[in-house]
């Protein structure tokens, strides 16, 4: 903590030597800014609160004010003026740390979202030419788009004739999700692959019918196992006891 504070003071002193205290976006402040940015990022990653992060800067105020008072003690007008300049400067630097802190947190959120998207759409090969796509979690249009693309690309890559979309892990199905599912099935069919939708829970079956979504043209099975069996049969394969 202490070396960091010393470094900060040194950076501020170096920047302030040129006499420009009003504008911290200038080049001579870049060392101070970099220092604070590193500090904010580090603290954001460690889970500090924004208040704690900004307090690093604001805590210098008291010391600075004390110094100013001892220097201009008798001259009230200069003291007030210098205090105001110092306040303004440290407020700006403090706000800067808060800004960087927030930016760092947002970067973390964006990265996590990206990772979640990638993690949540695996396409697995159950057998030669049989793919399974276990969907878990709520489907929004952004995710469904990625799911659709992944599945279609996997169909080409593995030259799979049958794809099983398992929606056991999907908590709710609304018209939009149902429509996306139907689109995926239609697109797969255009490419020459057949889709089976499995894992439809009783509540979801009721919802789909109440919503008036027509799944008539799509092969549906209650469980992934049933769907796999159908897929094997379509390929002319059978499971035998060895």
């Amino acid at each position: 903590m202490q070396p960091l504070a010393r470094e900060f003071i040194a950076a501020v002193r170096e920047a302030a030597r040129d006499g420009e205290l009003g504008d911290t976006t200038r080049a001579e402040w870049s060392r101070t800014r970099d220092l604070l940015a590193d500090l904010s990022r580090e603290r954001a990653a460690q889970g500090f609160s924004p208040t704690e992060t900004a307090t690093f800067v604001f805590s210098f105020k008291q010391a600075i004010f004390k110094r100013l008072r001892s220097e201009f003690g008798s001259d009230a007008e200069t003291l007030a003026e210098e205090t105001w300049t110092a306040t303004e400067l440290f407020d700006k630097l403090g706000l800067y740390t808060a800004e960087i802190y927030q930016k760092a947190r947002e970067e973390v959120i964006v990265r996590q979202q990206q990772e979640m998207l990638e993690l949540s759409t695996p396409v697995v090969e159950l057998w030669h030419g049989i793919l399974a796509l276990p969907l878990i979690g709520t489907l929004d249009s952004n995710r469904t788009q990625i799911v659709m693309q992944n599945l279609l690309e996997a169909i080409v890559a593995k030259s799979a004739g049958i794809a099983i979309i398992d929606i056991t892990g999907v908590p709710t199905v609304d018209t939009l999700v149902a429509q996306h599912l139907l689109k995926t099935v239609a697109a797969a069919r255009l490419m020459g692959a057949e889709c089976i939708i499995s894992g439809i829970r009783p509540q979801i079956a009721q919802t789909i019918i109440h919503l008036g979504v027509d799944l008539g043209g799509v092969l549906t099975k209650a469980t992934l196992a049933d769907a796999f069996q159908v897929a094997l049969r379509k390929k002319g394969l059978a499971v035998a006891k060895g």
């Binding site: 659709m148 279609l152 239609a186 797969a188 255009l190």
Partner: peptide
């Protein structure tokens, strides 16, 4: 192609 299939749908 997948992109063509998506477009058509």
């Amino acid at each position: 192609q997948p992109s063509v299939a998506i477009t058509l749908v």
